[in-house]
């Protein structure tokens, strides 16, 4: 993102990993709760006797959490002048 006006800063909220992580985590929470409180025998029978919402909810919590942790541990650093990274390929044409 070529927005940086300061020297270098973390990309912060608009790191796509935060967005993926947040959405999947939220979905995980909703499914987890639906799995605990809303699981009637009819709903279970549909999925062949498994509490599908609960298990998928747990999986999504883990995957969403992974993205959030990844983005937190290794933030994207946005350099001041991103357009200059082009210098790696001195192309022959303008």
């Amino acid at each position: 993102m070529a927005t940086a006006k300061t020297q270098r800063h973390a990309a912060g909220l608009f790191d796509i990993r935060n967005i993926i992580g947040a959405l999947l985590f939220l979905y995980g929470v909703v499914l987890f709760i639906a799995g605990i409180v809303g699981s009637s025998s009819v709903q279970k029978a549909k999925a062949g006797g498994v509490n599908a919402n609960l298990w998928v909810g747990i999986a999504l919590l883990l995957v969403g959490g992974f993205f959030l942790v990844w983005a937190y541990v290794r933030p994207v650093v946005v350099p001041d002048d991103l357009d200059q990274t082009d210098e790696k390929q001195p192309a022959g044409n303008p």
């Binding site: 796509i16 967005i19 993926i20 959405l23 999947l24 999925a47 062949g48 599908a52």
Partner: peptide
Amino acid sequence: YNEVLQFFVIVAALLPLTVIALHK
């Protein structure tokens, strides 16, 4: 960015569908 997000949502939708149907 929306395409990347879409990728994860569609996997979150279709992977459980496949696994559950396969179990069934």
